[in-house]
Design a protein around this nucleic acid. Structure first.
Length: 114
DNA sequence: CGATTGACGTACG
DNA sequence: TCGTACGCCAATC
């Protein structure tokens, strides 16, 4: 439960924190989880603010639908995102998460698990 | 205050 | 499978 008394951005941060280590999700999945399907761009914008949030938000675990590290440029240095992912055991090849389909973690799926 | 810009995704041909 | 068009909505110009 994420708590609706928090703002949309704050919810995005919390959902991002739910992503297990060594797994990744995408912007659309988070947006849909929050009931704002189609507002994936807002998730991306929220991620922009994520660096100022505490506790830290694992923004590196949020990639686009293709598994591409589109947000790498927004980190301290572009390669940091890839390094953080590799540090969690996620293989990254040519700015793309290898086995993305298998490593993909959908917050909506988290709700469906009995 | 209107136009432009995005860490995006879906629809369509 | 790939390129283009469009919706989404806050922030910025």
């Amino acid at each position: 439960m994420v708590g609706k008394n928090d703002g949309f951005f704050q919810q995005v941060f919390q959902v991002a924190r739910l992503v297990p280590r060594g797994r990744v999700t995408n912007y659309g999945a988070i947006a849909r989880y929050l009931g704002s399907a189609g507002s994936a761009r807002m998730v991306g914008w929220a991620m922009n603010q994520a660096h100022y949030q505490l506790p830290i938000v694992p923004a590196h675990r949020v990639v686009n639908r293709k598994g591409l590290l589109t947000g790498k440029h927004h980190f301290a240095y572009p390669e940091q995102m890839e390094e953080l992912l590799q540090n969690e055991g996620i293989e990254v090849k040519n700015d793309q998460v290898v086995n993305f389909k298998e490593l993909f973690w959908d917050p909506t799926d988290h709700l469906s698990i009995d």
